[in-house]
Design a binder for these strands. Structure first.
Length: 288
DNA sequence: CTTGGGTCCTGTGCGC
DNA sequence: TGCGCACAGGACCCAA
């Protein structure tokens, strides 16, 4: 799935297109994704103006002038594509926008008042959409238990040390736990642990304070680097404009099983192990 | 409380 | 060419 950097890239792509626009038409083409859509979702989206686009963890939040906020999660395979209005036809004054017909996994299609079309496509349907009052958005069931944003001020070494203390779970699982820190996924946990020389198997409660001090800025750096690169393009993830992100070329361990460790003078080989059902890539020689 | 495992769903790439 | 299996960026829910 898109992890935090990919979701932030999508948010940045949507922001200039959606902010200030009115949703002229909402085509909700199935009753659910991972969960049922909220009642009357199409009606509640129609005729409302988008006032802001925010991100919390891997969720995109679109504030609406109806007093509600649209919550959007891309799951593992969710994509959002933006189709610009057909300029040629608009010039003729017809305001007929020749968008291509929806494809197989186009589940929700939003047509904006300027003719732009926003398409939510998600083959695996692990994604989600919901509507809630803007005033209580943070109390939404999916958001209430989230830990701090890794790029925010609340995520620091004392906080992380407190959350890891006494934990018998491997570091891999601890950093994937959205209640400890929100937004990391399989790729960026692997990359952050490699950059900080920590084994994904290291028990969270056994990590020294000095190493926690080092880990926190490394997490920030990995995510910042990835956002700057427009996220990672794997399989079907693309930016909203169809462009590919290119951070996947900067992976140091993810997907490199059997390849030599890139650490100067290490000489180790990248290994893949399975932890809580997910692949962990790491160098057993320089990650301890 | 924490922790591990199963589950949802479709698509792709590999070995045979 | 076809078939079955492993694997894929997430996260909820439940049992122990």
């Amino acid at each position: 799935m898109p992890e935090l950097p990919e979701v932030e890239t999508v948010r940045r792509g949507l922001e200039p297109v959606l902010t200030g626009r009115v949703i002229a038409r909402a085509d909700v083409r199935r009753p659910d994704l991972r969960w049922p859509f909220p009642p009357r979702m199409a009606e509640r989206l129609t005729g409302v103006r988008v006032t802001a686009l925010r991100r919390r963890s891997k969720y995109i939040l679109a504030d609406l002038d109806s007093g509600e906020t649209l919550l959007l999660h891309l799951g593992m395979s969710g994509r959002i594509l933006i189709h610009a209005a057909d300029a040629g036809r608009a010039m003729l004054g017809e305001y007929v926008h020749a968008h291509p017909a929806p494809e197989t996994h186009d589940h929700v299609v939003l047509d904006l008042d300027d003719g732009t079309r926003i398409v939510f496509n998600d083959p695996r349907r692990f994604g989600a959409m919901d509507l809630m009052p803007t005033a209580t958005a943070e109390q939404h069931k999916l958001l209430a238990g989230l830990g701090p944003e890794p790029l925010g001020n609340a995520f620091d070494a004392p906080y992380l040390a407190g959350r890891l203390a006494g934990r018998r779970t491997p570091m891999k699982a601890a950093l994937l736990d959205q209640g400890i820190v929100a937004g990391l996924g399989n790729i960026y946990v692997c990359e952050a642990l490699f950059r900080s020389g920590i084994s994904p198997r290291r028990l969270a409660g056994n990590l020294s304070r000095a190493r926690i001090d080092r880990l926190v800025p490394v997490i920030r750096d990995v995510l910042s680097d990835a956002i700057a690169a427009g996220g990672s393009s794997l399989r079907d993830y693309r930016q909203t404009d169809g462009e590919l992100g290119y951070f996947q070329h900067s992976f140091r361990v993810y997907g490199r099983e059997g390849a030599p460790c890139i650490t100067e003078g290490c000489g180790g080989t990248v290994a893949r192990i399975v932890q809580s059902g997910r692949s962990s890539f790491y160098c057993p020689h320089c990650q301890r």
